[in-house]
Design a protein around this nucleic acid. Structure first.
Lengths: 160, 160
DNA sequence: TATTGTTATACTCTATAACTATA
DNA sequence: TATAGTTATAGAGTATAACAATA
């Protein structure tokens, strides 16, 4: 395969290495970016006791009280089987309560308890800004553009 | 927490849902983007029998013959324990050969076999273009900008 | 019959630490 | 003592299918 300039990835203590077009591969870059975001998250919000995806579940329930469990699962790309366990953990923690509606007794509707709401309200600002604050390699405009492009790529931009 | 316009994520068969600032969260967008890329990958290159990260390992060995196993692991953010299994699978498949150098008999140096090289050469172009071809929501310039920003975010851009 | 959610199982990947052999 | 890689084990997350209750 033809490609332009060989590129290298430098790690402080490591050899140089030829990445070639891998360094411009969207999938590769998304993976490395996600590792970076995770590191930032755990450095700043590790004490939260929740992973990013778990907080997202609480956030969605907080903003869509009574939302169906399956709707959360599909939209966050979490499998039903996993969602069942997650919600039970949140129930045990006292953050979420489940309700089976009379008009469709197969369904499970989710709401936050008072404790769950307090938790989300206390931590939402940190959660939504941890990746933006601090010494990022991107300035504010670049970050905004990155987010706009990712929204468009995923199909979110159109649904504003 | 204050935020601007509530946003919604629409899935063809699903309810509308308020995402709020989650829809502008870098971590969330990276995750959804990666799901999208994976779907594209398996739709187009599922027959390859390898996942994106696995092909990346072969690619690095191909372009850096004799590279140390640990160097590949650190640069691709794969743990040593996992890398050991992966390399053994590639050995069993006849794609990779291991060599313990005389000057440091703890190390393992990796090269591709003839079969491994043929495999990489046959599939590299598809692998590096699958996410670019076809009906993406981004045009060529937007995709190039997205990739540039991700490279900068991850610290790759500087090392060109 | 189809759908919602649950349970069970197996598999992949990660995290961790103990271990070996070398340096 | 430290390093490169291996092995073992446990846990998180995914994939899949079977299942119960309900529509």
């Amino acid at each position: 395969m033809e490609y332009d300039t060989p590129e290298t990835l430098i790690r402080p203590d490591d050899q140089r290495m030829t990445l070639g077009p891998l360094g411009r591969s969207l999938g590769f870059l998304l993976r490395i970016s996600q590792v970076t975001v995770f590191e930032t998250f755990f450095a700043k919000l590790g004490d939260l006791g929740l992973k990013p995806g778990e907080f997202s579940v609480l956030w969605l329930i907080c903003n869509n009280p009574g939302i169906r469990q399956g709707v959360v699962a599909r939209n966050l790309h979490i499998k039903n089987a996993r969602m069942t366990k997650l919600i039970r953990q949140f129930e045990d923690k006292g953050f979420v309560s489940r309700h089976v509606p009379d008009d469709d007794r197969r369904a499970v509707e989710l709401t936050l308890t008072k404790e769950g709401q307090a938790f989300v309200e206390t931590n939402a600002e940190d959660f939504f800004t941890y990746s933006l604050k601090g010494r990022s390699r991107l300035n504010a405009e670049e970050m905004a553009e990155l987010i706009r492009l990712l929204r468009k790529y995923t199909g979110l931009e159109e649904t504003k």
